[in-house]
């Protein structure tokens, strides 16, 4: 029997152990989440299946999606032109469900380095990169990214030449940015998939650079 657990008090109704994070004492806000969710279902606004499907869809989004877009832009100049002109359209054409948000791609070059932030809240290209990292939502990042970006970048291990101009883009609920990092040197022979593997989440926020391939 695959579910032959002995301590039945710690099994969920489906016969599985509860996830560790479901075992902590119930908080006030968790009670509110459960209550709100159940009321929405009972009033006919949502179904449990819809909620689960939305969680799965969000879980499926990751920086790998953005990395595929960046790699395409690196190898296909015509695509890059379309991406820079209208990132919502260009990423949709690649099959990504980026929803109603207005996505703007900005390109890093030797002369210009772009960073994104949301000083007012937590706006992020979530439909392309998945949910933002915790630091993106902190007071420290939101406050300082627009004021002393070089110092902030240094905390992320990124040191840029003085001659590089830094542009900080402040996102809003209706306008989200994604950075196309500069293509690293020594990657001429790499195919799109190998290039995508060099593109990190932080490089698409601007707080990192694309990886340099081993041996380059």
């Amino acid at each position: 029997m695959p579910h032959d657990h002995h301590d039945h008090e710690h099994l969920s109704p489906s016969g599985h152990p509860f996830r560790a994070d479901n075992d902590i004492p119930l908080t006030y806000w968790q009670r509110m989440e459960i209550a709100v969710r159940e009321l929405l279902v009972e009033k006919g606004h949502l179904t449990p299946a819809e909620i689960n499907a939305q969680i799965d869809a969000m879980d499926a989004r990751s920086p790998a999606d953005g990395a595929a877009v960046v790699a395409r832009a690196w190898v296909d100049p015509e695509f890059k032109t379309r991406l820079l002109a209208n990132a919502s359209e260009a990423t949709r054409a690649m099959g990504f469900d980026i929803g109603p948000l207005n996505l703007i791609a900005v390109e890093n070059t030797a002369e210009i380095h772009n960073i994104i932030v949301c000083t007012l809240c937590s706006c992020y290209p979530r439909n392309l990169l998945g949910l933002p990292p915790d630091w993106y939502k902190t007071r420290a990042y939101r406050s300082r990214a627009v004021k002393e970006p070089r110092k902030v970048l240094r905390e992320f291990g990124v040191e840029l030449p003085k001659s590089t101009q830094i542009r900080v883009h402040d996102s809003t609920a209706d306008m989200r940015y994604v950075v196309i990092p500069a293509r690293p040197e020594g990657t001429d022979g790499l195919d799109e998939a190998a290039l995508a593997a060099l593109v990190t989440r932080d490089s698409m926020i601007g707080t990192g650079l694309a990886r340099v391939p081993a041996g380059a």
Binding site: V117, T119, L120, C121, R139, R142, S143, R144, A145, K147
Partner: peptide, 8 residues
């Protein structure tokens, strides 16, 4: 909530 430019 308008945190841009503050010290932190």
């Amino acid at each position: 909530h308008d945190m841009g430019g503050q010290d932190a």
